[in-house]
């Protein structure tokens, strides 16, 4: 029995990863399929020395996170699609105040109240900001339970480093499925010095946290500052996993759970000698440009999503018309199957 290896659901792995990363404030409101996160936090946050609040609504939860973060605590909330829609105003304020925070969206079917089935149809909302204003979140898309644990820890570090809200974007399958996770033995110290935090100003100049700029030119000035920070993030933080890219004739582009199903399809095709590869974006914003910027014009792409073509737009932007791009997508509870992918790829080869 390997040491510190546990069988755990994606949701619980996210909660455990957050506590490991020194998250000391969590506020949330229950919604399927992410309830295990809030349940785990309710049970373990106090012991970890932090504060847990079951808020009266998603609006309250995100604004509590806004406050917790302003006070310097590593702060987090989690929800699922309709709940994350309700949080958009608060997320925009957090981005506008340049505060770090971690927001987890374990996506379910939409639009509206939708259903509780897995989906990836909140990609636009997550990667385009979601609320009002010219802002971005860093968006991380784990492809396994281990990665959900690891990336949650990363998300707190990125949030502090760039003073930006970070979103973990998963779907119901990732949240609910259980896989072995190797727990990290060392606790990440929340050691970023937050000299901007509202910690009481006795003996120093008061800090101000706000997203309100009325003086002429002040808001544009602030937006330019944000854009500079986004540019740096684009330069430094693009992440992806590539599989068989060197000799592939068709490359699947998929993230999260869809990338897992794509991997099965690819392994099956490779065993038949077919030259197929995979690009799995791990950061959805910034979207990884480099692996899609290649000279080989004969290369073809197949984008697979649990939506009707949202990441597809980013793939098209990155490819810039150089290569043929096909799409396979289902939504509202439908999950594109291995067989459907294989059928599409065989037509492209």
């Amino acid at each position: 029995m390997p040491k510190n290896k546990i069988l755990v659901s994606g949701n619980e792995a996210i909660a455990q990863g957050a506590l490991q990363a020194g998250c000391s404030f969590y506020a949330g409101y229950p919604i399927t399929p992410q309830n295990e996160i809030i349940a785990y936090m309710a049970k373990h946050m106090e012991q970890a020395g932090g504060a847990f609040i079951q808020a009266e609504s998603e609006l309250a939860a995100i604004n509590m996170v806004y406050g917790g973060s302003a006070a310097g605590a590593r702060s987090m909330t989690s929800s699922s699609s309709p709940g994350v829609s309700l949080m958009q105003e608060g997320i925009s304020y957090i981005a506008g105040s340049q505060l770090p925070a971690v927001i987890v969206n374990i996506m379910r079917g939409g639009p509206g109240l939708g259903n509780i089935a897995p989906t990836q149809s909140d990609y636009f909302q997550a990667t385009r900001g979601g609320g009002h204003g010219d802002y971005h979140l860093i968006v991380l898309a784990p492809g396994s339970v281990q990665e959900a644990y690891d990336l949650t820890q990363t998300s707190f570090e990125l949030a502090d480093k760039y003073r930006i809200p970070v979103m973990i974007l998963g779907d119901g399958i990732l949240g609910q499925m259980m896989e072995p996770v190797q727990l990290s033995s060392k606790k990440i110290a929340a050691n970023t010095i937050k000299n901007w935090a509202l910690t009481g100003c006795l003996g120093r100049k008061p800090n101000i946290t706000k997203s309100f700029y009325l003086r002429e030119g002040a808001l544009e000035e602030f937006n330019l500052k944000l854009q500079k920070s986004y540019e740096l993030i684009r330069k430094k933080e693009e992440r992806y996993e590539g599989l068989f890219l060197a000799d592939a004739k068709v490359i699947l582009v998929a993230y999260g759970t869809m990338a897992r199903i794509a991997k099965s399809a690819i392994m099956q095709l490779r065993s038949q000698g077919k030259k197929v590869g995979l690009i799995r974006p791990i950061t959805l914003w910034p979207f990884p440009q480099a692996p899609l910027n290649v000279k080989n014009k004969k290369l073809k792409y197949l984008v697979v999503e649990m939506s009707y073509g949202q990441m597809l737009e980013d793939v098209k932007l990155a490819v810039g018309g150089r290569n043929k791009i096909e799409f396979l997508g289902r939504s509202g509870g439908g999950v594109p199957s291995e067989e459907a992918m294989i059928g599409k790829i065989k037509k492209l080869l």
């Binding site: 390997p2 089935a117 896989e179």
Partner: peptide, 11 residues
Amino acid sequence: GNYVTYLPAYG
């Protein structure tokens, strides 16, 4: 020491 995945129906 095997790789394993457990997927529950959560409806």
